[in-house]
């Protein structure tokens, strides 16, 4: 979130999308797949943050936890309980994968709130693979666990027979819309908040409205802190719900 600069002409310049640019940190402007870009930097920082929180902070193995260890234990208990509540005991086998998703998203979201930071989760190139991984993983798991009876999920036996084909079509469509909404929700929320803050920042160049602009940035920032956590939570809980469908398709 760089601050918007005033253009030479004296008018306001809104460049809310510039913060999402992927740039190489060194060398020329060509982005190869292995180039160390700002996206790569902040993705790596998210990994580092996960390491610091879950490994370094718990290295003392204190019976009475300190602050950092409490947060690590809270994160563990939070996701563990979520998986157990939604997917049941057999869902706990997939707990490390879900915890991986949650920790990556929550860390990337929060690190993206730092000024001048890049938010990996605001890019469809990041959220779509995440959502596709969940979608493909859950679908394959559903067929492996239940065989062809996994398709029974689309055949609503509690509905009247005449309605069932129509319902099956709706269910099928909604099933394939899942990865779309799953990924667009996360990237969209991240992008929206950051872009709105950037627009407020653009208004701050105008002396008359700058107090309101700063106030607006502050308010949006508070909302963003909330949204960053809620979006990570929602992504994780929806992953759990999809996983439950794969494990028990007849509910």
């Amino acid at each position: 979130m760089e601050t918007a600069e005033q253009s030479d002409g004296g008018g306001l310049v809104f460049k809310p999308m510039d913060q999402f640019l992927v740039k190489p940190l060194s060398g020329d402007g060509i982005v190869q797949w292995f180039t160390f870009t700002n996206a790569a930097l902040w993705t790596s920082l998210a990994v580092l943050a996960v390491f610091l929180l879950l490994v370094t902070a718990t290295s003392k193995r204190a019976i009475i936890p300190g602050r950092a260890q409490s947060i690590a234990e809270f994160a563990y208990g939070f996701i563990h309980k979520m998986v157990e509540d939604i997917c049941g005991k057999e869902g706990l086998r997939y707990f490390p994968y879900i915890m991986t998703l949650f920790m990556f998203i929550v860390m990337a979201n929060f690190l993206g709130l730092n000024p001048t930071a890049f938010t990996p989760t605001s890019h469809f190139a990041v959220t779509v693979p995440l959502a596709l991984a969940v979608f493909l993983g859950v679908t394959i798991l559903g067929f492996v666990k239940n065989g062809a009876s996994f398709l029974g999920m689309f055949w609503v036996t509690s509905a009247p027979l005449a309605l069932r084909p129509a319902l099956a079509l709706i269910e099928l469509i909604s099933y394939f819309v899942r990865p779309v909404s799953h990924s667009v929700r996360l990237a969209g929320s991240m992008m929206a908040g950051h872009a709105v803050i950037k627009v407020f920042a653009g208004f701050a160049a105008l002396a008359a409205v700058s107090p309101f602009a700063v106030l607006g940035i502050t308010a949006m920032y508070g909302l963003e802190v909330l949204v960053c956590f809620i979006q990570a939570y929602v992504f994780t809980i929806l992953t759990c719900v999809y996983l439950k469908d794969a494990l028990h398709p007849h509910h």
Binding site: V22, V31, Q32, W33, F34, T35, T37, A39, A40, T43, S44, A46, V47, V50, F51, L54, V55, P96, Y97, M99, T100, M103, F104, P120, H123, A125, V126, P129, L130
Partner: peptide
């Protein structure tokens, strides 16, 4: 830039999974 982001994302996910 997609290839770049996906590459680093997968690297990060594998790293986090192993750490966890």
């Amino acid at each position: 830039t997609w290839g770049n982001q996906i590459f680093w994302l997968l690297l990060a996910l594998v790293a986090i999974y192993l750490i966890l």
